[in-house]
């Protein structure tokens, strides 16, 4: 069946409501929360700090270590086995790869920068919300960065390219394709691109175009969140 109207009534290129705030975890060097629709991510940055075990140390730069986790109560509330799953470990790795190109890790050889991303509530698009929060947290922590990183899930539902899929759309019975993309907003360079599903080149191009445009909007929200910390009186 053709997907002509989105479940929540949004336009095909419309994002869910977004809220972003920095400095939410006082203990951390830098932190941020990023909410998009019902998906709610919090990121906290600890470091640079000494890295143990020593064999993990890199001689010329800091190690960026991301820890992605969905809280036990974040989904439908069903019992979740404690500990990192294979999926968490993969998402941790792609988050690292999405952020490494922008952070100047060469400033701190042999140290580690730990980025913790926790999902308080999930409704799809979690790794992207996590990346948005993590980029904000790193900027909040005062790291030297080439640019921010904005991320969104674009894709195709039924036959229709859309942006910011929610869980209902991801699970669409007539087929959906999920394409998380992360972008450095200033140059449009892509730091994360994953594909979950089958797609033809034309739909892929349309979806990616929508995704990149959406990331520009997200970057505006991120910048406003960083500035807000210093313009409230």
């Amino acid at each position: 069946m053709k997907y002509t109207k989105r479940f929540d009534g949004r336009k095909f290129d419309e994002l869910r409501p977004i809220q972003a705030r920095v400095g939410v975890v006082k203990n951390a060097m830098g932190s941020a929360e990023f909410k998009i629709g019902k998906t709610h991510a919090i990121a906290a940055v600890y470091g640079p700090r000494e890295l143990f075990p020593k064999f993990l140390q890199l001689s010329d730069r800091a190690l960026l270590r991301c820890h992605y986790n969905m809280m036990a109560f974040s989904g439908s509330g069903e019992r979740v086995r404690p500990g990192p799953s294979r999926r968490s470990k993969e998402i941790s790795m792609v988050t690292e790869k999405a952020l490494e190109p922008v952070v100047n890790l060469g400033e701190f050889p042999r140290a580690v920068v730990d980025v913790y991303v926790e999902l308080i509530q999930t409704d799809a698009g979690t790794r992207c919300a996590g990346i948005c929060a993590a980029a904000l947290a790193l900027a909040d922590a005062g790291f030297e960065m080439k640019d921010l990183v904005a991320a969104i899930s674009c894709g195709v539902v039924g036959d229709q390219p859309v942006v910011d899929l929610n869980k209902e759309e991801e699970d669409y019975e007539d087929g959906a394709v999920d394409i998380p993309i992360a972008v450095m907003p200033h140059t449009g360079q892509v730091t994360l691109l994953q594909l979950d599903g089958e797609i033809d080149p034309e739909h892929l191009r349309k979806a990616l175009d929508m995704g990149k445009k959406a990331c520009e909007q997200i970057a505006d929200v991120q910048r406003a969140a960083l500035r807000a910390k210093y313009t409230e009186e």
């Binding site: 900027a139 922590a141 005062g142 960065m145």
Partner: peptide, 22 residues
């Protein structure tokens, strides 16, 4: 800019005074 900070121009050189950081 490469840091969150305040613009501090010194003639033709533009510095950013960081607002956070270790």
């Amino acid at each position: 800019a490469t840091r969150v900070g305040i613009v501090s121009p010194n003639g033709h050189v533009i510095h950013i005074i960081p607002l956070s950081g270790g």
